[in-house]
Design a binder for these strands. Sequence first.
DNA 1: GATGAATGAGGGTTCATTCAT
DNA 2: GATGAATGAACCCTCATTCAT
Lengths: 203, 203, 203, 203
Amino acid sequence: MTLKTEKYPALYQASLELFADFGYRKTTVEDVAVKLDMTKGNLYFYVKNKKQLYEQTITHALTQWKDHVKKAVDKKSDPVEKFRVMAVSALAYIEKNAPLRQVIIKDPQIFTLSPREDRFAETNQAAMVILKDILKQGVAQKKFYPMDVDQVTAYLFSVYMMFLIKTYVNADQASSKKLFAIALELNLRGLLNHTTDRLTPIV
Amino acid sequence: MTLKTEKYPALYQASLELFADFGYRKTTVEDVAVKLDMTKGNLYFYVKNKKQLYEQTITHALTQWKDHVKKAVDKKSDPVEKFRVMAVSALAYIEKNAPLRQVIIKDPQIFTLSPREDRFAETNQAAMVILKDILKQGVAQKKFYPMDVDQVTAYLFSVYMMFLIKTYVNADQASSKKLFAIALELNLRGLLNHTTDRLTPIV
Amino acid sequence: MTLKTEKYPALYQASLELFADFGYRKTTVEDVAVKLDMTKGNLYFYVKNKKQLYEQTITHALTQWKDHVKKAVDKKSDPVEKFRVMAVSALAYIEKNAPLRQVIIKDPQIFTLSPREDRFAETNQAAMVILKDILKQGVAQKKFYPMDVDQVTAYLFSVYMMFLIKTYVNADQASSKKLFAIALELNLRGLLNHTTDRLTPIV
Amino acid sequence: MTLKTEKYPALYQASLELFADFGYRKTTVEDVAVKLDMTKGNLYFYVKNKKQLYEQTITHALTQWKDHVKKAVDKKSDPVEKFRVMAVSALAYIEKNAPLRQVIIKDPQIFTLSPREDRFAETNQAAMVILKDILKQGVAQKKFYPMDVDQVTAYLFSVYMMFLIKTYVNADQASSKKLFAIALELNLRGLLNHTTDRLTPIV
DNA sequence: GATGAATGAGGGTTCATTCAT
DNA sequence: GATGAATGAACCCTCATTCAT
């Protein structure tokens, strides 16, 4: 007999795909159950209610994403390298994970950092830690300029998420990716300690 | 006697505010009717169904936004000036129009340019025309470098919308606005014909 | 077309009969709707939810009962007469109103006077006022002995309700009614002012 | 190894407490299982279904009550004494057994003597036998007047149950107990053959 | 133009009960 | 004896939409 624990991976996958295709509202609890070849009633044996099914599913997917990036980052030692790998591996991951992408596009508030209603605060925080550690290391090694690491982390995190999402919202992925490359370079250069010529402020 | 047409402004306003506060799903047709001091039944005299009510409301708001920007742009003659005014006035408008902002945050696919499901294609196209005309003029006057105007338009449009939304999604508006300033300058410089110092290509 | 208001009497009647037959839990909202020849959905146009349907139905029935008793009492002027009429008319009413009887038997906490969860506090209070007024008048006219009217009211109210219910719980109505007669007499005699000696045995 | 039978006492106790707190409907089979540190599935090994669990639980509690009263009564020989002891010990027992009290208050039809749906007929009959034997003895010894023992038994039984319940339904226990004392005296006097003098107060 | 009563199609959730292991 | 996964039948409630008046 299948253990309860063994069923969650399939459950999250089925759930993610359906939420990706139809969105939270139009996805029925019954839909999920059918996709898993079980009854609605039994699905409630695994999950408290529809809302929690959604949140657990997203959390699961985001966590996997984060772990993947973390693994890639850990292979590098230089903070500049790490920064670049982080950005690139995050992009590569989401590029191949269509359901997660679609879900985020349909519910971009997943990344909302406003404490008021952040349903994925914990996961988002965990993801930011990766970035934060890189920045801290860079600053400690004087490769990055001295900064308020927390603030810069929050800022960069939201900018990257924005890019990652936007990259796949439009059909014109070519130009979006170019933008991504530019932004990556821009930010990296901004972080470096020896920026000889800076842009003049305008506003 | 009130003409049918005279009621639409109030209708769109009430509708926009509710959709802004509760989102499409949680806004009831009844909610809208009550806010307008009319009955559900009567509301259906003005509107075909809930979906169209939503789309008309958004279209109306976007059109007003576009008109406002257009008016500001038309006061300038130099394309560089126009470009800058366009960006700044668009930002200023959305800054003061909280409901529209919230609606966009809750449904960012409003700006999705994918032809598959663009419910606001027409309005978005109209908005892009403003940008496109500026670019065309700039190129004609050799102030902007020669480019594929259509592609650059699409690219810049989505980037701006992205910024405009993002600016208000997070509480950290200060840094977002700084980002906006930087991006504006970056893009303008990229567009100019005689860019003395360019960023080194990365990809 | 039927006015909303005009439908409540039928609604309460159908509802009361069903709750009487099957109890709160086993009575389905659909059952009520079907009995009224309407759809479930439409029933929710008249009533907020099942719980309120129940409470409104009971309140309605209790109020009618109270009004009936009040009308009978008001025809008398002597407090002793009033007391007797009150008891008898209350019994006569419930004797003919089988559904109300059954509902009370199935949910005797309808008369619970504990403030913690009295769902029919208001109605029960209103009913007690009738009794209280009789007692007050009797005391004022020195026909009843001086007493704490509030406490005696509460006491007599619960005793009577107990009798009224019990009278119909058993099949053996004959002896129950006899008990009722005895209790009525006993209480009335207890209330009278000039009880010089002990009550003569009555049974 | 625990025998199946050894588990019933704990089962009935847990069950009674839950039914007392939440009533039949709101008590879940799972609730009972959890309280017993077993699984739902296993509970069904001991009990056929929820309904029977309820009935067995109540029957068990009522039987214990009856046995307690019987034991007290058997210590006396005079029927008048027996009658008094019966009433007082029954009251004392229920006074200390809160769960049983609550269950009865929530489901007063436990004492319904109507043959149509008496789920506890057997137990109720057994309890009545105690009373009936006292009456028979009293009549045989000519201490009680000649009567239709069966009818008087049924009558007195329902009256006492009514009192016992009512005594604990309201917060105002003081006056309820006083009522109980009065009723006891009244009934005893009614039963006696030669009511020459007064009974001494008992409570 | 306006009203409000009516409809109908779900969708989420609970839970008693069963049964293979 | 015990487990826990699975089932299925209800049931409550919401709401967009229609339509006679």
